[in-house]
Amino acid sequence: MRLLSLLHRWTGAITGLLLAVIGLSGTALVWEGYWIGLPGAGDPVIADPAALGRVVETARATGPDLSYITFASEEIGLHQAIYHDGSGAYFSQDAVLVERWESFWERPELWLFDLHHYLFLGEAGKTITGILGLLLLAFTISGLILWWRTRKTFRLRLFPARWTASAVVRHHRDLGAVASPLLLLVAVTGSAMVFPAVTDAVLSPLAKDRSAIALPANSPAPTAQTDWPVLMTRAQSAFPQAYPRRLMMPREAGAPVAVRFRQDFEWTPNGRSYIYLDPFRALVLAVDDPAEGSAADAVREKLYPIHAGKVGGLAWQMALTFAGLALVMLGTLAMWSFWFAGSTKRAVGKLRPRDALRA
């Protein structure tokens, strides 16, 4: 038990600040639909495929080399276009430019997303956040084991009773015990998304063989003559009852245009239903319908919406907010009590009684 306590304390003291950053940024992202605050952000969604096609035309004319455009949703009533050079724009649902930026640093929802997922370090940062998720899982389990011995002294407080090392540690244990179910869920879902190979191995008993979607390798590239309203209308015909969520331009020569839809049974806000199209002839080339997937696919699809608060309404957003703020306090107070509170106590102990009173 002593070894477990040492591992818990030392690892938390080293990684506590990073976990606090992850918790705070994640909490802010849960509520992004409320604080973006641009004109039209609260508009109701108009899911007319021809109108969406006109928005795509405007987005392509506004910036160079469109990468993808995410269509308006109930959370944010604006279309978001992202370009290959890192710039982007918001458009109203009647295809009017609302906001334009040259770098993601100009939009807080974009750099907060990058901070939470990548720590501003790209793919290496993504791996680090996945490891932090696994550490959070270990912290939560080991913390519950350590707390169990002192459970009779449990007191739930917003802040420590006193700002001493022992009081902070007691507060840390009690707060961690209360938040542990949510922290376990956040840690598991986050790490599962970062390490898909591990997730696939765990879910392999629920998986089933499924033929890969055959896509042509010589699809023509979109041009100025591409009729985007017609193309979006054709895409909608493949999923008449689904919601168009994102249009993605070809990433390489010969690849088709892809449109993501969200069907009613899908939890992921942008859906996992794909339509692949020939932009020259506005023809549907292939359809990837998650309704034909396995139970493992269904579980994977639910990881992100649970982790990000995209399901469950206000109640789940509040629960995730508590988990995020608890993680901030657990991380920062763990570091403070380990690195600073102990040194302060030792420094005071070295003073003579009279000097200690003056201090």
Rank of each mutant, 00 (worst) to 15 (best):
L215C: 14
L7D: 01
A95H: 08
A282E: 14
T223N: 03
T153L: 15
P160M: 15
G77P: 09
A179R: 01
A295L: 10
P108S: 08
I46F: 00
E102T: 11
S67N: 15
F71H: 10
F91G: 05
I213G: 04
D174T: 05
S211Y: 02
V257F: 12
A253P: 02
G37N: 12
S294G: 03
V30D: 04
A50E: 13
A192E: 08
R151N: 02
R246D: 11
A258L: 04
A197V: 10
P39F: 08
L38D: 09
L146Y: 06
I14R: 02
T58K: 14
Q93A: 07
A165S: 09
Q317T: 09
R170C: 02
S87W: 03
A13F: 02
T127P: 03
I22R: 02
D227S: 04
E266K: 04
T27R: 06
L29E: 12
L231Y: 00
R234G: 02
T268F: 11
R251V: 00
Q225P: 00
A347I: 07
R260H: 14
S211T: 14
G42N: 11
P353M: 00
I128R: 03
A253S: 14
A315D: 07
S180I: 03
I46N: 11
A214Q: 10
P216N: 11
G254L: 14
P222F: 05
A59F: 13
L146D: 04
V284H: 09
V30E: 04
H172M: 00
G349E: 05
L38N: 02
G33A: 10
A356P: 01
S294K: 06
I82E: 14
A28D: 03
G312P: 08
W111P: 09
R170S: 10
T15K: 00
Y83F: 05
S67E: 15
A323W: 05
T189W: 00
D264K: 05
D355P: 01
K302L: 03
I145L: 13
D94P: 02
P64L: 04
G122M: 00
G312R: 03
L156C: 11
K310T: 07
I76A: 07
L4Q: 05
L303D: 08
T62V: 14
I145F: 12
W339P: 11
W336M: 06
A238I: 03
L184R: 06
K208S: 14
